[in-house]
Design a protein around this nucleic acid. Structure first.
Lengths: 115, 115
DNA sequence: GATTTGATGTTAGATAATCTAACATCAAAA
DNA sequence: TTTTGATGTTAGATTATCTAACATCAAATC
């Protein structure tokens, strides 16, 4: 993980900050958690702690809901996007691998010796 | 102000987050404020609210103190740096102005007509 | 060596923030 | 008409933050 991604994934923001940054109410934020759209970490004293990535995610959820989508819609949409991302990852891996092979940097993982 | 600078100057982080991000104690953070090294905003209910710029500033202060400097040293150092920055700003303005003049984009602010 | 100063620790008492759980509302879907 | 989905509101308990004061302790000063 990059330094930037590490910072963005640090869970340090309490509820009040999230309310300010998203314009959502505590009730909404906790409800989305109960519906498993987000799963913030907790402090040692059981207070929710959010990351900048969580903020982005909540703003996205807010947009989806304001556009008329339901929470179930959002969950389904994200399942599809996740599947698509995995396909992309798979394609990217294959591309990278063939590039490395062409440049002689790696052995073909499926290579069988021509005895 | 750029969008980035705007975000970095937003006062949204309460004391607990600052403690986590800087490794300082509440006592230290408040003491630096009493010594006028920082001046965080306050919420409507009188709680301190810090920005990302404040975090950077506190980390810098921490480094200075750990290097053996005293708080007065830091204040003097920053006065000098501020003066230097202003000089730089002045120099930058003059440079920009002469560039604009050469390209004919601006009238010499000190021009006197050759009646 | 004794005293002062600078930075930080600790505590007490008051107020604010967050937590869970429950009941309320209200428009839209069934 | 009833159910569902999303949100509001409230109560009681716990945690976080606030100010102010007193304590500590090494380093500078007298």
């Amino acid at each position: 993980m990059s330094e930037r991604e590490l910072r963005r994934s640090m869970s340090v923001l309490p509820m009040g900050t999230v309310i300010t940054l998203t314009g959502l109410t505590a009730r909404q934020i906790r409800y989305y958690e109960s519906q498993e759209l987000i799963s913030p970490n907790r402090s040692a004293s059981n207070h929710r702690l959010y990351s900048l990535n969580d903020i982005d995610r909540l703003l996205l959820i807010k947009d989806y809901l304001e556009s008329g989508m339901t929470i179930q819609d959002i969950k389904h949409l994200e399942h599809k996007q996740q599947a698509k991302d995995q396909l992309s990852d798979s394609a990217a891996r294959k591309l990278l691998q063939s590039e490395l092979m062409r440049s002689g940097g790696l052995i073909n993982p499926h290579h069988k010796p021509l005895h």
